[in-house]
Simulated scan of single mutants.
Amino acid sequence: MDDRKPQPAFLAGPVGRSARSATVALVAVGAAWAARAAWQIRLAAAGAPASGPPDRGDGRHRPLTSLENSYHLVSALGDAAVLLCAAAFLAWLLRIRDNAAALSGRPLRHAWPWVYAGWVTPVANLWLPRAVVVDVHRAIAPGQRLPRCVNWWWGLWLAGSLSGAGLMYTGTTDSVIERAYTDVWQLVAADAMVVAAAVAAILVVRTLTAAQRTRTAVFVRRD
């Protein structure tokens, strides 16, 4: 949304800036996970050192190779990108959700705390974040078909998060390195789904922001 255009007084505020921030953050996550995949392929190509895996068990670790050290750095940067992306995406989602409620003139199905709680509530986090996005679309584009990018985003997010060494992986970086030496393509497949989910999420942000711009313009003309 163009932040310079007049906005109806009842809206929470322009969503364009938060949409741009979310888009940049999603690009960063996609780039970070593509870099992870590239480093995992490099590790597989180099092969496991003769000294064995980094983690020997019982709290014992061997010194890391330079390539393994660089993967630790790439992984840490990716984790930081995810945290920043989560903050930017949720800020956009909360703003566009509040505006959608104002534009529709009725409460949405899911109250605003679910914008945050939906991601961390066990079991419910498998469907609630998508449901919040669907609520927003129905409020700002009543009667219109849900954009396909929403389902692609959510399906890819779940697949990339729950498989391989995706976003929900709880193992250590050293365990990922060990898997790269023996099963790299499963890791790369998980990374590819995260990258694809980030691309689909960008489309979601752009599509819903454009729909809200169109709906808001109707109210501006009425005023």
Rank of each mutant, 00 (worst) to 15 (best):
D2W: 00
R4G: 03
P8C: 00
A9E: 00
L11M: 02
L11V: 02
A12R: 09
A12D: 00
P14W: 03
V15L: 10
V15T: 15
V15Y: 04
G16K: 09
S21L: 14
T23N: 06
V24Q: 12
V24K: 14
L26Q: 07
A28Q: 15
V29N: 10
A31K: 05
A32L: 04
A34C: 01
A38Y: 03
I41A: 15
I41E: 15
R42Q: 15
L43G: 01
A45P: 08
A45H: 10
G47W: 10
S51I: 09
D55H: 03
G59V: 07
R60E: 01
H61C: 04
R62V: 08
P63V: 04
L64T: 01
S66M: 12
S70I: 03
L73V: 08
L73W: 01
V74A: 14
V74D: 10
V74G: 08
V74N: 09
S75H: 09
S75D: 13
G78T: 03
D79I: 06
D79L: 12
D79A: 08
A81K: 02
V82A: 06
L83I: 11
A88E: 00
A91E: 10
L93Q: 14
R95Q: 12
I96T: 13
R97F: 07
A102I: 02
A102Q: 02
A102S: 10
A102M: 02
L103W: 10
S104Q: 10
G105W: 13
L108S: 07
R109E: 03
H110L: 14
P113N: 06
P113K: 01
V115C: 12
A117F: 07
V120M: 07
A124F: 09
A124W: 09
L128S: 03
R130P: 05
V133N: 10
H137R: 04
H137N: 06
G143W: 13
G143C: 11
R148Q: 14
V150K: 07
V150Q: 06
W152L: 15
W152R: 15
W153Y: 14
W154V: 02
W154K: 06
G155K: 09
W157D: 08
W157R: 15
G164K: 04
Y169E: 11
Y169I: 00
T170Q: 14
G171E: 12
G171L: 04
V176W: 02
Y181F: 15
D183N: 10
Q186N: 12
V188M: 03
D191P: 09
A192P: 04
V199W: 13
A201S: 14
L203M: 15
T209I: 03
T209M: 03
A211Q: 03
T214E: 11
R215A: 14
T216K: 01
A217E: 08
F219E: 13
R221V: 00
D223C: 02
